[in-house]
């Protein structure tokens, strides 16, 4: 393992040839897996059930002890440090949420600070602050018991609890899996907004490719047997799937899904200029996704988009040009 390249300085979590084999089983759940997750990055592990993604996640905080390999967090080898102490410094959110029913919401959030010896009044203040952060009114919710909250509210508390000691790393195991679809989308959007503010290094497990595409900065797609089929940005996975397994797993509709990940600015470079003023246009922002732009054009019955480009003034793209440009492989675009 010493012949492996040394991790880059901005690596937050490094898995170095990590394996997990349970005694009495000849096939390893995870075998010789190496990954590098950068500081502040949101990485989603996705794959069919039994591919070892949850085991991989649980090895990062050593709820599952790896049988081989090393794990580095923030440059420190944590493979053999005290597991309980390690976990106090890592946020952990699970699908079942796991709020303690006999404690109030505030006390649930303050569990880790309490273990770390933070004074009572300080813990309380922190809990209220975190409730505010995840969008729950502290005055209304702090002294309730978990049972009095809806599933979505409970998972917000679950996130708040994981953030309580301000850990640099958060591990999430299907955090939005138990919430109904409408609340899930809302939670996902809010969570993305929250992540923009707190910039944690997040590793999340899901079996839902749409969720992975929506949330991840990078997505690790596992094949059965913990083979890391592809580990790349959502756009790259949709544009250039590494192999048939990834293509199958992403499923149909990849070209259309790409449209929400491509920005108008991305496609401008490859799109031939059309004469401006050739038709009715909708003005869009270069930062808008192609999907949003299309939606507006179709809704208004317009013929194309008008984009303001800093050096050339504004450019007009008709629908056909926009779509052709958006269907180019992303390699050219980036």
């Amino acid at each position: 393992m010493s012949d492996r390249p040394t991790p880059s300085p901005d690596a937050m979590i490094v898995l170095d040839g990590v394996s997990k084999r349970y005694p009495g089983q000849d096939k390893a759940v995870v075998s010789d897996l190496s990954m590098e997750i950068r500081r502040g990055e949101f990485v989603v592990l996705v794959g069919p059930s039994g591919c070892g993604k949850t085991t991989t996640l649980r090895m990062i905080n050593r709820l599952v002890e790896p049988t081989a390999g090393r794990i580095l967090i923030d440059g420190r080898d944590v493979t053999h440090v005290d597991g309980d102490e390690l976990r106090r410094g890592i946020g952990y959110v699970i699908q079942q949420i796991g709020l303690l029913p006999h404690l109030t919401i505030a006390d649930n959030i303050a569990l880790v600070p309490k273990m770390l010896g933070v004074a009572k009044s300080e813990r309380r203040a922190r809990a209220l602050e975190l409730l505010e952060l995840v969008g729950l009114d502290p005055a209304l919710h702090a002294d309730r018991h978990p049972r009095q909250l809806s599933g979505g509210q409970q998972q917000r508390v679950g996130v708040a609890r994981a953030l309580a000691s301000d850990p640099p790393v958060m591990l999430m195991d299907e955090p939005f899996g138990a919430v109904d679809p409408i609340a899930r989308e809302k939670l996902q959007t809010e969570f993305l907004r929250l992540q923009e503010r707190i910039r944690k290094t997040i590793v999340m497990v899901t079996h839902d490719m749409d969720e992975a595409l929506r949330l991840g900065d990078r997505i690790a797609i596992f094949d059965s047997g913990s083979r890391l089929a592809q580990f790349d940005t959502p756009l790259e996975i949709l544009s250039n799937p590494a192999d048939d397994f990834v293509r199958d797993f992403v499923g149909s509709g990849a070209p259309v899904r790409r449209l929400s990940l491509l920005t108008v600015a991305d496609v401008l470079g490859t799109a031939p200029s059309t004469a401006a003023g050739a038709g009715r246009a909708i003005e869009v922002d270069p930062g808008d996704s192609v999907h949003t732009a299309l939606e507006q054009v179709l809704a208004a019955g317009a013929e194309g988009i008008e984009v303001a480009v800093p050096e050339e003034g504004s450019r007009f793209l008709d629908l056909g040009t926009l779509l052709t440009a958006a269907s180019q492989p992303a390699k050219v675009l980036t």
Partner: peptide
Amino acid sequence: DPALIDAGRGMGM
């Protein structure tokens, strides 16, 4: 509920 124990272990108890 085993999930509660998992949550507890996961936060470092």
